Simulated scan of single mutants.
Amino acid sequence: MTNRKAATEPNDLGRYFIERANAGDVDGLVALYEPNAVLAFPPGNLATGHEEIREVYERFVAAAPVLSPGRQHPALVTGDLALTASTLTNGDVTVEVARRQPDGAWLWVADQPALAP
């Protein structure tokens, strides 16, 4: 199990993703998403909700990837919504929409983690 602190800023989500994925923490990865979030991964597939997102990440961590943080771009925040993006070390770009929760924490609602440049 990894650090399960809540994301107090939208870009915390990306940092927590790298940490939890490298630790093989499937539950921690799923906890970064709202219950009805959508995840477009692997490319060409769409997972909706915690159950389907969990299935994706169970397969993902089983492959034991070692992720390196890329370049995280400043979050674009308007009210309770934020657009987050990172350029990965392989040049791919991730794009996510996060929403501020009633307790002030941020969770992803839509995640496109493998957008080729």
Rank of each mutant, 00 (worst) to 15 (best):
P43Q: 10
V30G: 02
E58N: 06
L46R: 15
I18Y: 08
M1I: 06
W106V: 05
E9Y: 00
L67G: 02
A110H: 15
P113H: 01
P42Q: 11
R15G: 10
V77I: 11
V66W: 05
L67Y: 02
T78G: 08
L88E: 15
E9K: 08
F17V: 01
A114P: 00
A6V: 10
G14W: 11
N11M: 07
G24L: 02
T89L: 11
T94G: 02
A82L: 05
F41Y: 15
A7P: 08
D111E: 13
T8F: 08
A75P: 03
E55S: 14
H73Q: 14
W108H: 07
Y57I: 06
E34C: 11
R99Q: 13
A23N: 12
L88C: 00
L107I: 02
Q72S: 07
A105L: 04
A47R: 05
M1V: 04
T94I: 07
P42F: 06
P117R: 07
I53C: 06
A114N: 15
Y16L: 12
T2Y: 05
D111T: 06
G14Q: 15
T48K: 14
Q72D: 14
K5S: 13
E52F: 05
L32S: 00
D103Q: 11
Y33G: 04
N11A: 03
D111Y: 12
W108L: 07
G24I: 00
N11D: 10
T94W: 06
P69F: 01
P69N: 13
T84V: 09
A47D: 12
T8I: 10
S86F: 05
L67W: 00
A116M: 12
T94M: 11
E51Y: 01
A47L: 09
V109Q: 06
R71D: 10
P102M: 12
G79R: 10
T48M: 06
P74T: 01
L76Y: 02
W108F: 04
L13H: 02
T94A: 14
A7G: 09
P117A: 11
P42V: 08
H50C: 00
A114W: 04
P42H: 07
P74M: 01
Y16I: 04
V56I: 11
N90P: 07
P35F: 03
A21S: 10
R54C: 04
V56Q: 08
P117D: 12
P10D: 08
V56A: 09
E19C: 09
W106A: 10
A98G: 09
T48H: 08
G28I: 03
